[in-house]
Structure formats: C-alpha cells, structure tokens
Nucleic acid binder design. Structure first.
Length: 582
RNA sequence: GCGCCCGUAGCUCAGUAGGAUAGAGCGCAAGAUUCCUAAUCUUGAGGUCACAGGUUCGAAUCCUGUCGGGCGCACCA
C-alpha cells in the first residue's frame, strides 16, 4: 500500500537496465537508493538519490547518471514527469489519476488503511508499566504505559505478533514493605492503635482495605505469629489486591496486558537459578570487589566481595552484582532470568518501556540479554520522560508525602481516556511533556486532540448533511464517483497527504516513535479543515453541491478517505474517533 | 569524576535512517469576515539548528571536543 515502495521498484528496475547497458558496473549495490518525498512539494512527488549514491562507486558524474535514469523512467505508466535537479536528484511527478487510484485503495481498506506485513508476523514482546505493585498507578507511569501501548498497536498494524506483558516485582524489598505495611493495617483493623505509619512503610490509606479484608477472612490468627509465618501470605494477599487495583487503572487507560509474569514465580520455579547457572557455565561470573561509586556519597559503603556478572564484556561500564549482602538475589538477577524466560518463550525481539529515571539500568540489562541469549535476542529499551502537570499554566505540585500526587485515575476522571492517551503520545518520548488540564479540555483549534477528532466528526457531519440533500447516495458505494473532478490544488494536496499514510505508519513503527503520527494526523486534519473553509469563499469547492450530484459523490469519496486515515490513526492511539462533537 | 538523554524562531515543539531554499502551532503585525456545513480565515515578519572542529558530492542529523540543562551512578526497584 505504501506507493513509495512501488516507485522504488521501478527505480531499481531502471538501475538494472543501466547495468545491462553498461552504464553501471555489474553487481551495483542499490541498497542505499531511496524513494521518498522531496522536501519541497514543487520538486515533485517522489525523489530518489540513486544517481548520487551510485555515481561514486561507478566512477560517474551524478548528473549524467541521473539523466540516464530519467530516460529509463520516463515512459512508465502514471509517471507524468521525471527530471534532474540539484546535485543529481531525480524527481518524479505522478499524473493526477494516480492519486485517484490511491483514494480508491483507501476507500477499500477503510480504517485498516496503513496496515502492512512489514513485521512478517515476527513475535515481539513489549514489557511495560511493570510498576511496583505497592499502590495505584502514578500519572507519571501513565505516560510510559500509553506510549508503550500505542507502540504495541503500531507494531501490530505493520504485521508483528505483539505480546503485551507486565512484570510483577513481587519478590523484592518493596513487596516485603508492602506486606509489613499491610500487617500493620491488619492489626489496626483488629482494633490496635498503630499510631503513625513508620518511615519506610507505605502510608497509603488504600492498605487499610487490605488489612481489613485479611482480618475479616482470618480473624486474629496471624496476630501471635512470627513474621516468617505471616510474611508470605500477607505479601501474596497484598500484591494480589494491588495488582487488581493496577489492572483497574490500566483498564481506565484502555490498556490490557496479555501476560503477567511474577518475579516470585520465576524464583520459585528455579528459573533464576538456571539463568545464573547458565552465565556461570559461560564463564561470565566471578566474585570480586567493586570500586566505590564516585561523585556520590554512600554512607554505608564498604569493600565487599560479591558475585558479579561481567557486564563490561558486553558494553556496560562496570560489572554488576547478582547477590545482595543478605544472600538474596538482586533485582537484576531476577530480571536476567525474566528476559531469558521471554527469549525461551520465542521472543527474539523484546522491547521495554521505562521511565527516564531508569536510564542508568539500560546498559546493564541489554548486556545481560546479549550474554544469556548468545546474541540471538535483542532488547530495545525506550525511555519516557517525565510529564509536568499544569492547571491553566500553574504547575501542579506533586508530593507523595502530602498526598497530592496525581494518580492515573485522577487524570482520566478529569480529562477522559482519549484526551490523556492522545496527549501522552504527542511528543517524542524522550522529551519532557507539559500537560495542562485546562488546555487539553479546550475545544479550539489550538488543542490538537480536539482539532484532529473534530476533523473526523466534521467529516461525519458532512456525510449526514449529504444524506439529507441526496438521500439516494450510498456512502459505501463511491468507488465509481468521478474522482477526476477533484482537481483543486488543495484537493490534490489532500489526496497526496492521505496516500502518504502507510509510509508514515511504517516509519513510525520502524523508529518506534508513535508520536510522529500525531503530527501527521494534525496535518491531515488541517488540510481538511482548510478545504472546508475554502468552500466558504468559493462555492464550487463546497462538499455538497445540490445541483451537481456526481461531483458531490467525488467529494464524499475524498471525505471518506479523510475519515479512514484519521480513524486508522486514532485507532492506533487507542482513541475513539468521534462522529459528533458535544 | 563517569554514563545516558537533550539543546532548532520570542514560547511550545516537528524535522520523514545524511539530501535541495530548516518547518508547524501559539504569540506578534497587517488585512478579511458576522457569512455559513460545526468551534473564523488569509498574508507577513521572525533562524549563526548551543559553540568549535572533523567525516563527504551534501550535516540540524554521523564522529570528536567545549558550554548549558535533565536523569542516573555497589548490596533499591
């Protein structure tokens, strides 16, 4: 569906023809030859760097080579014009009918437009959120979650078999704290005065419910027992409670994971031991003493022999410890086992999306994945920067202690899932994002969420109006409309824009950068709104022309195209394309 | 001290795996419009792409260094 691929095939064929003619050497490598839109639309529709890339190895002048290429491309159907420009660009312009054909393709595909099989069905594991199961999801995690979820949709769109996965960190110190905090609340539920929640415990009131629930179920049976007796059951109960709350939060965001993997289960199943044994077998473990960290004072630091993984052999800065001083595994060790587990489940490609504050951990886990998969597995980590929340320009201060931190639920209840999701992917993920509660709710063209969805709604509105004017027009049967009458320069421009959608989807998917699609959709919406406005000045450009049924049908076809592309895009975002604004 | 990310118009940001004269929105300036299909429209000014080198046909993009900002830096996750 990406017509640039089609044109590139023609270019490659032309290059082969030049090889046959002796103008290029046998075995010419055309892999760097591109077919992409020129920066300036006045240059044409497609531009190729072929002559410039091939000139040097062939010992030719780029412009001369370009001229020869032009001769080969000139008579191919639907190409209107081929010319040489600048240092040796070959610019191609398509005939207008070409865009009509693209529109027909769009109409046929509907909201599936942009779908492709680029991924060849390859399995990709996308791990995201993976927040500690110790409380509701913070709004900061919300961005990570949405960026990853949209990326998952995007990769599916281009033909990957994506598994959305959540790693439950239920084995470490935080989970233990959660269990202890819950035990405290349990005692409280049984009437004990527990006073202030001690430092280091989770003070959140949501744990009261957990304590109460255990008291209701078990009465005072845990009260007289030692910690080692109640710790595991309390942890399990609390983690389950937190996870179901987290699932609710995720659901609010429109996110559903297919697989949840528990760190505890991995340990109990022996997966961690097996991973360590594997690294040992490869000779990648040793016991040693690390240098103290520089530039940061660690009060209780002491030289201590530790079990270390040779991360430096795989590009990390220092070797990394696998065991804590109390003899339990570090988080890292469990994580290695987890990624090994994913690999063994058939995922050669893994993507993790984390908050930017975990950036320091990336090299470590990537090097471990390289080691334990013998280079056959690839882990890509995407970092997502913080979100700064504002309310009408005033920064919203967040403090966990003061209880003023913003949860995902808070935000969704205020602005809705769709606005939240759209805004969260509207910027490059490694850039900070400002989120203003007031601005994102505004119904003006300054608000991109509104602007894009309004274009979709407006397109439906036009269809409704058309139905009144021409009750006999079937909006699903427009493929025989006289598209060649769509010849205003802005109509052509819109058609070209729409035809570029599959390429945008591919680029965004390959770069793992869904935010690009926001900008593109904004452009489509803008071009559509512009045409609408143009109809105010030039009556002939109005979409519905009571005395010209066929031109109306052509215009409706174009509008269906706009609908398809915007719906296709918003669906990737997990945003519902609305048919009416309220 | 080290590692990672970032630095583009007054502001917020794009920049399509190295392409041609670096773009958009807001704001600013000028003008149009009170019409209609649904929430105005058009035009304009505005830039040493942080800085300095390098790589090559060609650099905002890649490499090196400098400056500035963010994050992180045994045994937390």
């Amino acid at each position: 569906m990406n017509f640039f691929h089609e044109i590139r095939k023609h270019i490659l064929a032309a290059i082969q023809a030049l090889v046959a003619d002796g103008d290029l050497p046998e075995g010419t490598d055309a892999s760097r030859v591109t077919a992409e839109p020129p920066r300036d639309e006045s240059h044409g529709d497609i531009s190729t760097n072929a002559a410039m890339v091939l000139a040097k190895p062939a010992g030719k002048n780029p412009r001369e080579l370009a001229e020869k290429l032009v001769a080969k491309l000139q008579n191919i159907g639907l190409i209107a014009e081929v010319s040489v420009a600048g240092p040796g660009f070959v610019n191609i312009r398509m005939v207008d009918e070409f865009w009509d054909q693209q529109l027909l393709t769009i109409l046929e595909a509907g909201a599936d437009y942009g779908k492709s099989n680029l991924g060849l069905g390859e399995k990709i594991n996308l791990e995201y959120v993976s927040a500690n199961p110790t409380g509701p999801i913070h709004a900061g995690h919300g961005r990570v979650a949405v960026v990853a979820d949209v990326l998952a949709n995007l990769l599916e769109k281009v033909g990957y078999a994506v598994t959305r996965e959540y790693y439950i960190n239920d084995a470490g110190g935080q989970a233990k704290k959660l269990a202890c905090s819950s035990y405290l609340r349990y005692r409280e539920a049984l009437g004990e005065d527990i006073g202030e929640i001690p430092e280091g415990y989770y003070p959140g009131p949501y744990l009261k419910d957990v304590g109460q629930a255990i008291a209701d179920r078990d009465g005072d049976k845990w009260l007289s027992l030692d910690e080692e007796e109640w710790l595991d059951p309390f942890r399990e109960f609390a983690v389950n409670a937190m996870m179901s709350a987290i699932r609710e939060d995720l659901k609010l965001m429109g996110i559903t994971h297919e697989v949840f993997t528990s760190e505890m289960d991995l340990q109990r199943s022996g997966a961690v031991d097996r991973a360590v044994a594997d690294l040992e077998e490869q000779g990648l473990l040793y016991t040693g003493v690390l240098e103290p960290p520089k530039g940061k004072v660690v009060e209780d630091w002491e030289p201590r022999p530790q079990l270390l993984f040779k991360a430096t052999e795989f590009g990390d800065d220092v070797d990394r410890p696998l065991k804590k001083s109390d003899g339990t595994w570090t988080y890292f060790t469990g994580d290695i086992a987890y990624h090994y587990d994913k690999f063994q489940r058939g995922f050669k490609q893994m993507i993790n999306v984390w908050g930017a504050d975990h950036g320091g951990y990336v090299k470590r886990i990537v090097s471990a994945v390289n080691a334990i998969t013998r280079g056959d597995g690839r882990l890509d980590v995407i970092l997502s920067q913080m979100v700064n929340f504002f309310d009408n320009g005033v920064a919203v201060k967040m403090s966990k202690r003061a209880g003023t931190f913003v949860t995902v639920r808070d935000v969704i209840e205020k602005v809705g899932k769709d606005v939240f999701r759209f805004m969260m992917v509207s910027r490059k993920s490694d850039a900070h994002l400002d989120f203003d509660f007031k601005k994102v709710m505004e119904q003006t063209k300054d608000n991109p969420v509104f602007y894009v969805n309004y274009a979709h709604a407006r397109s439906h509105s036009v269809m409704r109006m058309a139905k009144q004017e021409f009750p006999d027009i079937d909006p699903t049967q427009l493929s025989d409309a006289p598209l060649k009458r769509l010849r205003d320069e802005d109509e052509i421009r819109l058609l070209k824009l729409l035809a570029g959608w599959p390429r945008q989807v591919e680029i965004a998917a390959q770069a793992h950068e869904p935010h690009r699609l926001c900008y593109y959709l904004y452009e489509v919406a803008g071009q559509f709104h512009m045409l609408w406005n143009k109809g105010k000045d030039e009556a002939i450009l109005r979409f519905i022309l009571p005395d010209d049924r066929e031109l109306t049908r052509a215009r409706l076809a174009m509008i269906k195209g706009v609908q398809a592309v915007i719906a296709s895009g918003l669906t990737i975002f997990g945003v519902e394309p609305v048919e009416e604004m309220h």
